[in-house]
Nucleic acid binder design. Structure first.
Lengths: 210, 210
DNA sequence: TGCAGTCTTAACCAAATGGTTAAACCACAT
DNA sequence: ATGTGGTTTAACCATTTGGTTAAGACTGCA
């Protein structure tokens, strides 16, 4: 019997998982010490190995948890039948809401992807990723109909994701460079929900000569 | 006499610095082992401490080097007297050129900023950062003159930087999600020089009813 | 050639780190 | 009360890690 199948709230196993999630997400695989997870979970370090066998396996479970929590909603957003404009709005809302509630997560994912790309692709990323094809096709149809300005669809997707995610990544530096105190930068980041939509739709307006 | 003042090309000290730069930029402070730097520099590990005294001091010098190499050009771009459109173009060109030649650097900077924000601000970031005020004022003047569509200047700056930097950060994942092989993703990233400009200027067009 | 200063090496050190072990503890069933 | 299986503990282990040390090698100068 696999021990992990019996996990319920507030068991030792779950407490370890929650603590590990917090620490791994902040400090990544290399920066996380097992003793720190144990301290945070309020347990003896040997239990980490009793329940999860190794640091790497614990990390793998945590990382998979982080990724698989986002996947269904990304998939729903990308693959739904909503009209394009509403889909873009839903996508932006989703991304900014998700990240503002889990501010360490994007940095964690990107950090680990860049540090251990092979490992991440083979062990953490699910095989059935959401496919942007439907979204891209919708975009192409709107361009062909002259409703929006021509743009290579991949660039639009990358632009939107960039503008949603990066400001959270760069928050400490942005606060300094833009001269914003903590409360102000927080408000600024939430304001980006409307700012990004506004910018994207402004960019997508057809040329007046078209 | 401060040993570091005598550094010239291909001395042991410089070889250590170059090796440390490569490893720190890829693996960050936590993930970097001193033996690895020594191996890469082809020297005995004790020399790391002889020349740089500690891991932290070596890291500090490398990180400062990374930051200070970019600052003068960012400052020139932001604070120059170029017209706004040309300034935006120069900024985008600069950022994408810089990053495509140092693909690990943005991840390094963001990683370290997020992991050790206090330390980074106090020890690595120079006190005299480039000020975006002139750029922001130019933008406000153009908005007031009706030449460009109203946008909160900070959002525009953040949008531009986001679209320049993030795609390089997310390259491994983007390649998978967009189904692009290595050569194609490279070309795609360089293509973003024109794509980002195009998008930004499209977004800044005044509304036809204005 | 000798000397002093600098550079380099190999061995060593103490602490940290991920992991192991055996015994104690706990709950439940007989 | 005893046995059993599962959980937890404290001590321990081997390796890794950043750093130190002392001796040898090298260089430049008188």
């Amino acid at each position: 019997m696999d021990k992990k199948e019996t996990a319920t709230t507030d068991t030792t196993e779950q407490r370890i998982f929650d603590a590990a999630h917090e620490v791994f997400v902040q400090k990544g695989l290399d920066g996380t010490k097992m003793q720190e997870i144990a301290d945070r979970a309020g347990i003896n370090k040997a239990l980490l190995h009793y329940y999860y066998r190794s640091k790497e396996k614990l990390y793998e479970m945590v990382a998979k948890g982080v990724i698989t929590r986002a996947i269904p909603v990304i998939r729903q957003t990308l693959e739904s039948d909503l009209p394009l404009k509403e889909k873009i709005e839903a996508f932006i809302d989703f991304y900014i809401n998700l990240i503002s509630k889990n501010t360490f997560v994007p940095m964690f994912i990107l950090g680990e992807v860049n540090k251990h790309p092979q490992y991440f692709v083979e062990h953490i990323l699910p095989k059935d990723l959401p496919q942007p094809q439907k979204f891209l096709q919708q975009l192409e149809a709107e361009i062909a109909a002259g409703h929006i300005r021509p743009i290579r669809p991949e660039h639009l997707v990358v632009n939107i994701v960039s503008m949603c995610v990066f400001p959270f990544l760069a928050k400490p530096m942005a606060a300094i460079i833009l001269g914003m105190p903590e409360e102000e930068i927080k408000a600024f980041l939430l304001e980006r929900k409307t700012a990004v939509k506004d910018f994207v739709f402004a960019a997508l307006r057809p040329d007046p000569t078209a």
